[in-house]
C-alpha cells in the first residue's frame, strides 16, 4: 500500500491459475528457449559444415578459450592481449577526450572560437576514423603511435560534438533564472552550462568509447603483433576458426564490461540525469 499525499493506492496483484500458456509466455522461459536454440543451431551448422570448415562448434570454442588462458599465443597470454588492446584504448581515449571536450565547450561558449574552429571541424567530421589508418601508418609507421592516433581521431569527433551540442541545447529559461537571481556570466557558465551539459558530455564519452573499440580492432587487424584484433586475424591466417570465434567472444565480453563500467560511473557522477527507461 503506497500513500501519495492524501490519496491511497492499493496495489492489487493478480494471480491467475498456473497454466501451460502462462509458462510458455514467461519471459525467462522464452529467454532460455532462445539461448538453447541459438547454440543448437550454431552447433548444427558447424557440424554439418554449411559454411565450409569455417565455423567452430561452441564446444571447440570453449576448449580454445580455456587453452588461451593457460598457453600464451604469440608470446603473450590471453590477459596480455586484452591488456594490450585496453592500453591503446585508454591512452587514445584519454588524449582524445581531454583535447575535444574543452574545445567543444569553448566553441559553444564563445562564438569567435566557434567561427574559427567549426568550418575546419566540419571538413574533418564526415571522414570515418578508419579511413585515417593508411595515413597514420604513413606518418607513424606500424607501431603503437599510429594505433593511438586512430583512436584519438575516433574519440575526438563524438566528444567534441556532444560537448558542443550539450551546451547549445540548454533550455534558455535556465539562463533566465540565473540572471534573475543576479548571476553574472561566470555564474551562468559554472552553475548552468556545466551541470546541464554534463549528461550530454558523458553520453559523448560513452559513444567515443565504443568508437575507440571499433578503431582499435580495425588498427589491429591491419597491422599488429598483440591485441584482441590480432588474435582473430591470427586465427584467420592459421585457418583456425575456433581461435577467431574465441577472439570474438573475448572482444564481446570485454566491450560489454567496459560499457557496464561507464554506465555505472554515470549513475554515480551525474545522478540528475533523467533518462527514459526503455528496458
Amino acid at each position: 500500500m503506497n500513500t501519495i499525499a492524501n490519496e491511497v493506492q492499493v496495489q492489487v496483484r493478480e494471480r491467475s491459475p498456473l497454466s501451460i500458456w502462462r509458462v510458455l509466455k514467461n519471459r525467462w522461459f522464452l529467454h532460455a528457449v532462445s539461448m538453447i536454440a541459438f547454440f543448437a543451431i550454431w552447433d548444427y551448422v558447424a557440424i554439418n559444415r554449411f559454411l565450409g570448415s569455417a565455423l567452430a562448434r561452441p564446444y571447440e570454442v570453449s576448449l580454445q578459450l580455456a587453452d588461451m588462458m593457460v598457453n600464451p599465443i604469440a608470446g603473450k597470454g590471453l590477459f596480455g592481449h586484452i591488456w594490450a588492446s585496453t592500453q591503446r584504448i585508454l591512452i587514445g581515449f584519454a588524449i582524445g577526450a581531454v583535447l575535444a571536450t574543452p574545445l567543444g565547450l569553448l566553441m559553444a561558449l564563445n562564438r569567435y572560437i566557434n567561427a574559427v574552429v567549426k568550418p575546419v571541424f566540419d571538413l574533418i567530421k564526415p571522414m570515418p576514423p578508419i579511413a585515417w589508418i593508411s595515413i597514420a601508418i604513413l606518418w607513424f609507421g606500424i607501431g603503437e603511435p599510429s594505433k593511438v592516433f586512430i583512436i584519438v581521431i575516433g574519440t575526438f569527433v563524438p566528444c567534441l560534438l556532444n560537448a558542443y551540442n550539450g551546451v547549445r541545447l540548454i533550455e534558455p529559461q535556465l539562463y533566465d533564472v540565473v540572471r534573475m537571481l543576479g548571476g553574472n556570466r561566470r555564474d551562468e557558465i559554472l552553475h548552468v552550462c556545466f551541470p546541464a551539459a554534463f549528461p550530454a558530455i558523458f553520453a559523448g564519452l560513452q559513444i567515443s568509447l565504443s568508437a575507440a573499440w571499433t578503431c582499435v580492432l580495425a588498427a589491429e587487424l591491419v597491422s599488429a603483433r598483440s591485441g584482441l584484433g590480432f588474435i582473430t586475424l591470427l586465427g584467420m591466417t592459421l585457418s583456425r576458426p575456433a581461435l577467431i570465434v574465441g577472439g570474438m567472444v573475448v572482444i564481446a565480453i570485454v566491450a560489454w564490461l567496459t560499457t557496464l563500467l561507464v554506465t555505472g560511473l554515470e549513475k554515480v557522477l551525474c545522478p540528475w540525469k533523467r533518462e527514459l527507461q526503455t528496458a
Binding site: 509466455k25 532462445s34 541459438f38 584482441l228 577467431i244 564481446a252 566491450a255
Partner: peptide, 23 residues
C-alpha cells in the same frame, strides 16, 4: 518476440562489426 530475440541480440550487440571481418 522480445523474449525470443532479446538474448541473441544482446550477445551480438557488443561485438563491433569489424571483429566479424576475419570470419
Amino acid at each position: 518476440a522480445e523474449g525470443l530475440a532479446r538474448p541473441i541480440f544482446e550477445i551480438i550487440r557488443p561485438i563491433p562489426p569489424i571483429a566479424w571481418i576475419p570470419l
